[in-house]
Computed example of a mutant assay.
Amino acid sequence: MSTEQSTAADRFPYTLTRTLDAPAAKVWRAWTTAEQYAQWAYAAPGSVEMDVRPGGAWKATMVTPDGGQFPLTGSYLEVDENRLLVVGMDVPGKPEPSVMTMELDEQDGHSARIVLRQTCDTAEERDMAEQGSTMLLDSLGAFLAEKPAG
């Protein structure tokens, strides 16, 4: 078995899919506009900065349910407006960023299917990332439901 196959086999992916009651453009704005992102993504007020373009940087300080705060940084690897966002997240002690892919697919002009994908190094990392992503999708859905169209 080659090292490449072994590495791929030893990775731990997850995929989450949801249909949101909002058009893709509205979902995209919620995910890529600092002011909106901060409202639903558990970010500390004023901590979100986004330069949404390939190679552009982002940062946010996330607030945990128990009130703890931790800073996150990274960059945008791929950007296809209203369709695809590939985000690199810096991980202390690791040479390569952790990569999350967010895909949007317009369903009927009124709803969008969102797919989040990430591959982690360990089952524990995957479980934590999947739990965090599930919380994000729950919060995003609630945010979109209460925000007027536009």
Rank of each mutant, 00 (worst) to 15 (best):
T64M: 15
E106P: 02
V27G: 00
I114T: 02
Q131G: 14
I114S: 00
A145C: 09
G141C: 06
R18I: 10
G93P: 05
L116F: 10
M1Y: 11
M100R: 05
Y76Q: 02
W58N: 01
Y42A: 12
T122Q: 12
T7Q: 14
A145I: 08
L140N: 01
F12S: 12
S98Y: 07
E125G: 04
T3V: 13
E35Y: 10
A9E: 15
T73K: 09
T61L: 03
A38D: 07
H110E: 15
D127P: 08
L84P: 00
I114E: 00
T122V: 11
T64D: 14
D90I: 04
M50G: 02
M50L: 15
L20N: 01
T19Y: 05
F143R: 02
E125H: 09
L144G: 02
Q69C: 09
M89C: 09
R117P: 03
A142S: 13
T3H: 13
E49I: 05
M128S: 14
P23V: 02
D105S: 14
P148S: 13
G55W: 08
F12A: 09
L72C: 14
Q118Y: 06
L137V: 03
L84S: 06
T17N: 08
T122A: 14
E130H: 10
D138G: 10
P92K: 07
L84D: 01
L20D: 02
G68L: 05
H110Y: 11
W31Y: 10
A149W: 08
D121N: 15
W28N: 00
Q5G: 10
L84H: 08
A22F: 01
D21L: 10
T73Y: 07
E103Q: 14
Y76G: 03
M1F: 13
D66E: 15
T33S: 14
F70A: 13
T15G: 05
P23R: 01
K94F: 14
M89R: 06
P45Q: 15
G150A: 14
T119D: 05
E106Y: 06
A41E: 03
V99N: 06
S139E: 10
G109H: 09
V91D: 05
W28D: 00
G88I: 05
E4S: 13
P45F: 06
W31P: 00
T101S: 13
V115T: 14
L104D: 00
E125M: 12
T3N: 15
Q118L: 07
R83L: 00
G109E: 05
D121F: 12
T101Q: 10
S139K: 11
M1C: 12
T33Q: 11
T15Y: 06
P23A: 03
T73L: 08
D121L: 15
D108E: 11
A22H: 01
A41R: 01
E81A: 13
G56W: 03
G93R: 08
R53P: 07
Y76E: 01
S75H: 14
L140W: 01
P148E: 12
A41S: 15
A43C: 15
M50S: 04
R117I: 06
T101A: 09
P95S: 13
V48W: 00
R11I: 02
Q131C: 08
D121V: 12
L16H: 02
G93M: 08
